[in-house]
């Protein structure tokens, strides 16, 4: 954590609420990117980020300055996103026609252009378990290492490696059939 962040945190804790915005603004991009990957819904991601920032504001006094502020915000946002999809899962479980609805399967006739590949990857990501998606998003898309990922998610490095391995394997299996050129290095 840099000196500016330390100063801004001190200001917020002294009651200067206006210092909160410059504190979190540098992290807004990665925060929204992570949450939108976890929720796969932009509107929901905006709600999650708002709630996460409020939580961060409320618990700023308990923030450990030896940690990265960005990773701490990721942790709060990932927890909030998890709460949301658990709630959604409970609601969907109560609706038999919606429950268990799988993401649309990849179109076998799909071409190999970039937008179709992106759509295929998003479908494959949607098919991952919530934990696998979290681990993949943090490690492979946000470039946190295994230890940081485990800290953000509050689980062991062993668990992170297990979920990461499964997630990568599932994604590869899902993509390989329709986009074999990916592995050919074209």
């Amino acid at each position: 954590m840099n000196e500016t962040e330390k100063e801004l945190i001190a200001l917020v804790l002294s009651g200067r609420t206006d210092a909160f915005e410059p504190l979190v603004t540098p992290h807004r991009g990665p925060l929204l990117a992570l949450v939108s990957r976890l929720t796969q819904n932009r509107e929901e991601a905006l709600d999650v980020v708002q709630e996460a920032l409020l939580r961060a504001y409320r618990s700023l006094a308990s923030f450990d300055p030896s940690r990265s502020l960005r990773n701490w915000l990721f942790q709060i946002a990932a927890n909030e996103a998890r709460d949301r999809y658990r709630k959604r899962a409970r609601e969907q479980a109560a609706l038999p026609d919606v429950a268990g609805r799988a993401p649309a399967a990849a179109n076998p006739e799909a071409g190999h252009d970039r937008s179709e590949l992106r759509a295929g990857v998003m479908r494959a990501m949607a098919a991952l378990s919530p934990r696998e998606r979290e681990v993949f998003a943090l490690r492979d898309l946000e470039d946190l290492d295994v230890r940081e990922t485990s800290r953000v998610l509050g689980c062991s490095s062993l668990a992170v490696r297990a979920h990461l391995s499964k997630a990568r394997k599932k994604l590869r299996e899902a993509i390989r059939k329709d986009f074999p050129h990916l592995e050919e290095g074209q």
């Binding site: 590949l117 990857v121 050919e184």
Partner: peptide, 10 residues
């Protein structure tokens, strides 16, 4: 190579 492509697309 596959993982690199998946990461870039995601």
């Amino acid at each position: 190579r596959g993982l690199a492509g998946i990461r870039a697309a995601a």
